[in-house]
Design a protein around this nucleic acid. Sequence first.
DNA 1: AAGATTCTCAACCGCGGCACA
DNA 2: GTGTGCCGCGGTTGAGAATCT
Length: 300
Amino acid sequence: MVRAPCCEKMGLKKGPWSGEEDQILVNYIHLHGHGNWRALPKLAGLLRCGKSCRLRWTNYLRPDIKRGNFSLQEEHTILELHNLLGNRWSTIAAKLPGRTDNEIKNVWHTHLKKRAAANHDDSNNNNNHQQQQPTTKKRRSASKKSKTASVKDGQQTKPPAAAGVAPPPASLLRQYSSDDVSSLTTGDNGGAQSNDAKPDDFSSTEEMDESFWSEVLSADSSTSTDHDFPAAELGSGLYDDPLASFVSSEGDGPGSGEEAAAAAAAAGLAHSIVDYTSMDFWYNLLTGDNNKELSELPPI
DNA sequence: AAGATTCTCAACCGCGGCACA
DNA sequence: GTGTGCCGCGGTTGAGAATCT
């Protein structure tokens, strides 16, 4: 079949969004919703293709997007879910409230992938060294974080290419203080991969990271259903393990029960879902016997 | 100080799946 | 059953910022 182009190429703007465009899109969606993405730009008066509008909304303008560095728990969850599901970013994102598939994909490709590989190697060669292998990448200093944090506070990362482009209206974006988020992303910025970290920078975090990730990735034989998060990272204890949510919640698409269980079994990761791999569990879940438990789960 | 290199992340592209006529 | 259109997903790109040499 011949696929029609996603949009008429002529006259449609591409590239970074301006603040004005953001405002138009947000206002329109607030007023009318987004029933038809394809028709939306025309109705809203935007010179964008519907696909671009959808992407902008889902990845950046949506009010429930959590902005800020990924916490240790979130990164742990991504790694575990990636082990279970592979590159099903949208499914992973569904288990991380406020995170977008694009963001998760970026985080994975930028550092989690390297770290997972490094840890994998480490676990394979863990005969005599506990330290992570030094990375060939140069370590980025902590000052990178200040940039990232300000970005995540709602300031657009980079001045859009077009002159006069403003960042999205602050009122549209959920505001976070840099204290809201873990420093893990910064701590990992080579910190977990490199040995040449500044000694007084965030060394305690790094040491924790290294042992933490070694444990996580070499824990195949562990039978614990709890994730051994350092207490400090648990903060107020409000952390709700998204994995628990994942394996407990009703399947949504590819994350559905049998498939996830099979994938988990295939991946040798039954340690984290040891109670969930039985067919009885999934049958009960899918037939609604676990509805009460589901209703008590945090919203996703 | 300047150029080179590396990293981040928003955005684009193409494809597959699904719904509907 | 088939064709068409739309949506959503995952891979990839490229500009700009940060860092290094």
